[in-house]
């Protein structure tokens, strides 16, 4: 296939894939981003994969734009064989309900399910991380059971604690840092999705899969103590 490459100003190009949120297209996106990064072309500043596009930031003083465009064409054409690496599954322990998930009752009321049913449905699936954005380390995930979809809060909270797990419409997500937001909070993980003091500051990356594992408040505290170091 010939790639749809567009200028995004004068220091970036965006490679546009079919505009659809689907695991297959996102796998092609992440695969292309990884392949292109692996080329190690001088003058590539960074590569940002999203749902169905890849933005390549470059330094035109170091990399001629026409060479870049040609390299992108070639990498896109070479796409077929080198399928995307099968992303490993990251397990995220979550203490559901109680002080960690103050909106769980609201999700139950909206869906007509019991708390245990909501937890079972939320933790019973694998989610695909389509991309990171919004705040450092925030995963945009897909694959939630539609039966637990719940609208956002009418009035967003001004501060949501880091690690909070929420539902907004048909989406679920985890807040890596304390931030404002209107998601229905159903639980919290003691894992740090973003820790700038860690050698690898980010727990998650685009293309990976996530599974939530219910834990008790006691396990939460124990893990939190372990994580703190």
């Amino acid at each position: 296939m010939s790639a749809d490459i567009r200028f995004c100003g004068d220091r970036a190009v965006t490679v546009v894939f079919p505009q659809e949120i689907s695991p297959g297209i996102n796998a092609a996106v992440c695969g292309f981003a990884a392949r292109f990064f692996a080329l190690g072309l001088r003058g590539i500043v960074e590569i940002v994969p999203t749902y169905c596009a890849v933005t390549i930031h470059f330094d035109p003083s170091e990399l001629d734009v026409d060479l870049l465009l040609r390299a992108v064409e070639e990498a896109a054409a070479a796409g077929g064989e080198a399928g995307p690496a099968e992303g490993e599954t990251v397990v995220i322990p979550v203490a559901y309900g109680g002080e960690y998930g103050p909106d769980l009752p609201q999700v139950c009321a909206h869906t007509g399910l019991t708390a245990d049913e909501v937890i079972a449905r939320h933790s019973g699936r694998e989610y695909l991380i389509y991309m990171l954005g919004f705040t450092p380390g925030f995963p945009y995930m897909g694959g939630m059971d539609p039966s637990i979809a719940t609208p956002r809060l009418k009035t967003p909270r001004t501060a949501i604690p880091a690690g909070s797990v929420g539902i907004a419409g048909a989406q679920t997500g985890v807040y890596p840092i304390q931030s404002p937001g209107g998601w229905q909070l159903i639980g919290r993980t003691p894992l740090r999705l973003f820790d700038m003091d860690r050698e690898d500051p980010f727990l998650l990356r685009a293309g990976q899969k996530v599974r939530f594992r219910p834990i008790t408040p006691e396990e939460y505290l124990a893990l939190e103590r372990g994580e703190g170091r």
């Binding site: 100003g9 220091r11 965006t14 940002v48 999203t50 749902y51 933005t55």
Partner: peptide
């Protein structure tokens, strides 16, 4: 569908432009 944003990008959410600057998402 969300994609990458660079500094200086002019988004038009509903007819009026917003120019994305240094601290953009």
């Amino acid at each position: 569908i969300s994609d990458g944003v660079v500094m200086g990008a002019v988004q038009v959410p509903s007819g009026q432009p917003i120019v994305m600057m240094a601290d953009r998402q």
